[in-house]
């Protein structure tokens, strides 16, 4: 992650974020579910996941949100404030696959130095997540 925070002026519509591949492991899926206090069985119990028609445990939505947020702050830095996340969910994230997060700056709004980043997380089955993260950045010195 960057140690410098991006300034509002440094960012242009169309800028792309560094691609972030996330190897999907059972450990990540279970750790994400437990860290978010989401003990719904399909996220930690393979048998329960199989009964629901999946071949293994699959990622819960909070973890997806957490990864999307990390992807954006890795790029934007510590002084960015995330103000909103809006996502559409697609194919499940399953162990053994890789989700690759890509993103680009879609909008800038000078009132409040607001920036909207469009994000896509794609795995072998298609788009796991598509959406937008809204954040504010500090003004330049």
């Amino acid at each position: 992650m960057s140690t410098e925070t991006l300034r509002y002026q440094d960012v242009n519509v169309g800028d792309t974020l560094p691609e972030l591949p996330i190897p999907l492991t059972s450990s990540l899926i279970v750790a994400g579910a437990v860290a978010s206090q989401d003990y719904t069985p399909v996220h930690h119990d393979k048998e329960a996941a199989e009964a629901a028609g999946m071949q293994d445990v699959f990622m819960n939505i909070l973890t997806t949100n957490g990864l999307v947020s990390r992807f954006v702050t890795d790029w934007a830095g510590i002084d960015a404030r995330i103000t909103g996340v809006s996502i559409k969910l697609g194919t499940p994230n399953l162990p053994g696959d890789t989700m690759t997060l890509t993103g680009a700056v879609a909008e800038k709004d000078e009132t409040g130095n607001a920036v909207t980043v469009e994000v896509t997380g794609k795995n072998a089955w298609g788009n796991h997540v598509t959406g937008a993260v809204k954040l504010t950045l500090p003004a330049g010195d």
């Binding site: 992650m1 996330i22 990540l28 957490g66 990864l67 947020s69 990390r70 890795d74 510590i78």
Partner: peptide, 12 residues
């Protein structure tokens, strides 16, 4: 615990 799971190193 959350940040470890997500691999999120943001110092904030």
């Amino acid at each position: 615990h959350w940040c470890e799971a997500m691999g999120d190193g943001c110092g904030a």
